[in-house]
């Protein structure tokens, strides 16, 4: 069996007296889509921010591609980050840049990329999310769903091996949400990515995930396929699925 691409052991993270993650362990296998469900404030976003080291955990270990994230220097960390894509809840597009410039932005980390190659990659990434026509627009001219898709295109432009989706369907109407969920599935097929999808949206989890875990108070309270988890006896999990 292939080793897990992400291996988290006994992760703890607190903000003052607030224990957000309490001894959490989980693994993500290559090519797997893992959805993390849970109420607001249960530590879902903190977990993925710890994985990409936007936050430093208090205790525990995070191993990505076989490397302990805490032991990496700045250069090595940036090299690993180039293999990761992150779709933020707000899409986090750079307001002062056009869609094209937003997509070109991560490409600056690649050594000696030609302008032709850059244009090709930008156009391809936008075609993947069906937004080729928006290439010269400013982020302020885009709708919420379009911003998410541009954000997704930007996170895919470096052809990552791992994708993190932080509440990809929050704030979108059901039809657009479904579109984004199917896009996540398409991304996995096309790029063979492993993904962690943070969501409250059961339908999104059902469409996108191979496996689901439910977090409560920073601990995993249920794990399995979405059908298995939905039949759990745990009251917190039941409440979530009702």
């Amino acid at each position: 069996m292939e080793p897990a691409i992400i291996d988290i052991q006994h992760l703890k993270k607190s903000f003052g007296p607030n224990h957000v993650l309490a001894d959490l362990s989980l693994k993500v296998n290559k090519g797997e889509n893992l959805a993390i469900l849970g109420k607001s404030g249960t530590g879902k976003s903190v977990l993925i921010k710890c994985i990409v080291r936007l936050l430093d955990p208090d205790e525990g270990s995070i191993t990505v591609f076989g490397k302990n994230m805490e032991e990496l220097g700045e250069g090595e960390l940036n090299e690993i980050r180039k293999k990761m894509g992150f779709l933020f809840q707000s899409a986090a597009l750079y307001d002062s840049l056009t869609v094209r410039e937003n997509l070109e932005f991560p490409l600056r980390t690649l050594p000696k990329i030609t302008e032709e190659e850059m244009n090709k990659r930008v156009e391809e990434a936008l075609q993947n999310v069906d937004l080729a026509a928006a290439i010269d627009k400013m982020p302020s001219e885009l709708s919420g769903g379009m911003r998410k898709r541009v954000g997704l295109a930007r996170s895919l432009i470096l052809k990552p091996e791992i994708m993190f989706y932080d509440e990809p369907t929050t704030g979108l109407d059901p039809i657009t949400s479904r579109g984004i969920s199917h896009l996540i599935v398409a991304v996995r097929k096309k790029y063979n990515t492993s993904s962690i999808i943070i969501t409250h949206d059961i339908e999104c989890a059902r469409i996108t995930s191979d496996r689901v875990i439910v977090l409560d108070k920073g601990k995993c309270i249920a794990e399995g396929t979405i059908d298995e988890v939905s039949k759990s006896d745990n009251n917190e999990v039941k409440a979530f699925f009702q």
């Binding site: 921010k49 990409v52 936007l54 940036n78 090299e79 980050r81 180039k82 990761m84 992150f86 933020f88 809840q89 707000s90 986090a92 597009l93 750079y94 307001d95 932005f105 991560p106 980390t109 470096l158």
Partner: peptide, 10 residues
């Protein structure tokens, strides 16, 4: 989160 986004892009 634009600053975070830059950081995770390396």
């Amino acid at each position: 989160e634009q600053i975070d986004s830059m950081e995770v892009s390396g």
